[in-house]
């Protein structure tokens, strides 16, 4: 029962924080001067009329009320300077699968590899295998993913010519065609994630392996392998599993840089496009994506925290 109360409390708190942030961002965006109607070149009267109908002349609070009312229904307005006239929500929904597929593939590759490397390094602690893996992990964790992206692009595309510069989106996101053409992007994203998982797993597992209950497990007659799998792994998973969960949630937000670099029509690319639209950033897209990114960030945090408590009942979250 305790855990439900805790979860409810956390969710209520999250919603409060979420609401405050969205309000803040909305006000900040509305404080910006509107794009002058002249910038569109023609049909000035039409544009002004449209703005009036959309309620751009109303006080900010009233506008915020309208925004909330429509946003709940999934209506975030229409593109003004970026993708003019198209429904913001629809464009966003069309983009989301690409980001998700890309990141899902990355995680599917990264988790097993990362865990395996981490476990191996922990078992061979302070031997050459461990040093080799640890050094590699250090390098791959530190170097930003776009540096690999350059390397991958240079080698796989320019030198070997295995992949096109642009990903193939003709068959939609949930297709082998897209995944295959996005392999360079997936590769560049995986390096860092694999290294991150490996580092974390190794750290947790080495700690568990030296604890007293492992000694007890060996004393009562388990072989080293048995003890490792049945006791050490299970205990090491306590902090690792929430990390995996958090990673799964944040896959939706994706990587701005990788999507930009490999021209994948995902959410990140949409965000950059909306910001860099001329003559002014598109505030409707910007608002939607702000809401989206904020929500993902908060949700990932909350899921990680709660899953700690669920996996390991010894951890009483929020207890004093």
């Amino acid at each position: 029962m305790y855990i439900f109360k805790y979860i409810l409390k956390r969710i209520a708190l999250m919603l409060f924080v979420f609401f405050v942030i969205v309000t803040m961002c909305f006000v900040l965006v509305k404080l910006l001067p509107n794009v002058p109607a002249e910038a569109f070149g023609k049909d000035m009267e039409l544009i002004l009329k449209r703005r009036e109908l959309l309620g751009y002349d109303l006080p900010i609070l009233q506008q915020y009320g309208r925004f909330l009312k429509y946003a709940v229904q999934g209506n975030f307005g229409y593109g003004e300077t970026y993708k003019m006239g198209s429904e913001v929500w629809q464009v966003f929904v069309n983009r989301l699968p690409y980001t998700m597929v890309l990141n899902l593939s990355t995680i599917v590759i990264s988790i097993p590899l990362g865990l395996a490397l981490g476990i191996f390094a922990a078992l061979k602690k302070n031997k050459w295998q461990d040093h080799l893996i640890s050094t590699g992990v250090m390098v791959f964790v530190s170097v930003p993913s776009f540096i690999y992206a350059f390397l991958v692009q240079y080698i796989l595309y320019f030198k070997l010519g295995w992949f096109g510069a642009v990903t193939d989106v003709s068959a939609g996101a949930w297709s082998w065609t897209f995944v295959r053409s996005a392999i360079p992007a997936i590769l560049s994203m995986s390096f860092g994630t694999i290294a991150g998982f490996a580092r974390y797993t190794r750290a947790e597992l080495t700690e568990v392996l030296t604890s007293d209950f492992m000694l007890l497990a060996r004393t009562k007659g388990l072989t080293k392998a048995q003890a490792t799998v049945r006791h050490a792994m299970r205990n090491a998973m306590v902090p690792i599993f929430p990390m995996i969960l958090g990673e799964f949630i944040s896959i939706m937000s994706g990587s701005l840089i990788i999507e930009q670099l490999f021209t994948i029509p995902g959410v990140g690319e949409l965000y950059i496009g909306a910001i860099q639209a001329q003559p002014a950033p598109d505030y409707n897209f910007f608002m939607l994506l702000t809401v989206f990114y904020t929500f993902i960030g908060l949700a990932a945090g909350i899921v990680i925290d709660i899953s700690y408590g669920i996996i390991d009942s010894r951890i009483r979250m929020g207890a004093r």
Binding site: V20, I21, C25, I275
Partner: peptide, 15 residues
């Protein structure tokens, strides 16, 4: 600080 840290960094920079 919860509220401030909840705003994604890219959004902060853009604003």
């Amino acid at each position: 600080s919860d509220i401030i840290s909840g705003v994604p960094f890219t959004v902060v920079t853009v604003l």
